[in-house]
Design a protein around this nucleic acid. Structure first.
Ligand code: NAD
Ligand code: NAD
Lengths: 213, 213
DNA sequence: CCTACTTTGTGATTGTGTTCACATTCACAT
DNA sequence: ATGTGAATGTGAACACAATCACAAAGTAGG
């Protein structure tokens, strides 16, 4: 199978297009041009068109894109035409915030399972999900066929839990620990590292300031 | 002033080197080679060396880098030799998690001020910080000279608050809302968008699987 | 002092993603 | 039908980042 190589950034943007298009459609804009979409997303029109062109021709020249049908096309492309079930491990500060966040469901993700290893938390219900014993992670995830897992356990526990997830057949992990995970190539790992982002912001604001002076 | 252009990715990695070096030093490794550091960070040795070379020659050929002194050099470069004071606006699910997170301080960041506009929250103390009235944001941030602000308010309030922050002289904003912020060029904005990251993971795990088959 | 060995620092190369610029296509009016 | 205006789709050029590969510079041991 020959797959034209699609930039990984493009996939992220497709999701944002999906979000923005839904919003525009709600406002009554049924036809959307690359210019309009680009403005809403703060990027260039050419980027929008190129991104879409990796997957086909979805627009009408001289006119633009039909919002409703483009939304469906994008959903198919990024596999969000079906709801994605997600498991969450570690119901501490971050985990609790995620469970209470209702917007995920509107965007196609649903946290359907939550785990912790603290006896004082197991059995509690947060949001609509009951916290289960982390000892059952493997069995439960394996049997339910969940592919995407969010990891919000303390740093020291991260790689241990990640190994269990691998055995359970998880395909992707979104971790809040400053990484250090080395997983086999068939498992996708993304780390959210707030400190790194802050460090970048601090550096850039200093540099930019200097360059202007 | 002629600044050799430094990749933005490099800055993020420098922060990770800083973290890893602190850890290695604690374990007693006083001399560290680019190979060692690269292994810990899961990247290539050449990347480590190139990153450092943008800022000078810090190593000894045939030997490696002195961990302690390299840490200090890096801290200077990324402006973390002094603690960075941070303000937090929006003490909901996410904001609360951030306030309770103690690790930021070890890494050079300190949340010194927190704001919310809900009367039921103003006056409460979370972590060690008392929640102040959002009405005072401008005055308080301006007078304390804080440059970095974390935004964790609901989506609909984000751009309004961002405008106030701009007036207050903030230089950088880390936002948890799926963006849509258009700020003047002298303000750095980074958005943490978990849904985008999940969408990318979902797509990649499908694609990779196909390519292997 | 010289040889063998190690690791840094970096110009050159490769790879990846963004942007440009224009030919192509479509809707519509005449 | 045919011309006009508008927006798409895309090869080519550009910009930025990762990696290679090797000279330079150090250590250690005789
Ligand atoms: N809270 C923040 O604002 C913040 C910010 C940046 C990074 N992080 C990172 O996110 C991660 C989680 O942070 P947090 O503040 O939510 O931590 P936390 O300590 O509040 O919560 C961790 C939870 O994981 C559970 N746990 C521990 N070991 C486990 C195991 N083996 N299996 C299942 N559950 C287990 C604990 O019982 C606890 O409920 C950490 O790696 C932290 O560094 C957090
Ligand atoms: N909770 C999550 O897991 C999660 C996940 C992804 C994205 N987000 C995003 O992060 C942001 C915050 O999410 P949350 O779950 O913490 O929301 P939340 O509703 O729990 O908290 C928002 C807080 O902001 C305060 N607030 C509202 N308007 C304000 C104003 N004008 N000035 C100051 N404070 C104000 C509210 O009183 C509330 O305490 C949202 O944009 C959300 O989309 C959250």
């Amino acid at each position: 199978m020959i797959t034209k190589r699609v930039p990984s950034e493009t996939i992220g943007r497709l999701f944002r297009y999906f979000r923005s298009l839904s919003c525009l459609l709600r406002k009554g804009e049924e036809i959307v041009s690359s210019k309009t979409l680009a403005e809403v997303c703060h990027i260039k029109p050419a980027t929008v068109r190129k991104d879409l062109s990796y997957f086909g021709e979805f627009g009408t020249r001289g006119v633009g894109y039909d919002a409703a049908s483009l939304i469906n096309k994008i959903k198919k492309i990024i596999k969000l035409d079906k709801k994605i079930n997600v498991a969450l491990v570690g119901i501490g500060n971050i985990g609790r915030a995620l469970l209470k966040h209702s917007t995920f469901e509107l965007e196609g993700f649903k946290i359907v399972m939550a785990f912790d290893n603290s006896p004082s938390k197991i059995g509690d219900t947060v949001g609509n999900v009951m916290i289960e014993d982390a000892a059952n992670i493997r069995e439960r995830i394996e049997s339910s066929g969940i592919h995407l897992v969010i990891l919000a356990v303390p740093d020291y526990a991260t790689s241990k839990v990640a190994n269990v997830l691998q055995l359970a057949g998880a395909k992707s992990i979104l971790s809040f620990s400053p990484c250090g995970l080395s997983m086999p190539a068939d498992i996708q790992v993304t780390c959210i590292d707030l400190s790194v982002e802050m460090a970048r912001l601090v550096y850039n604001s200093c540099v930019d300031y200097r360059e202007k002076v």
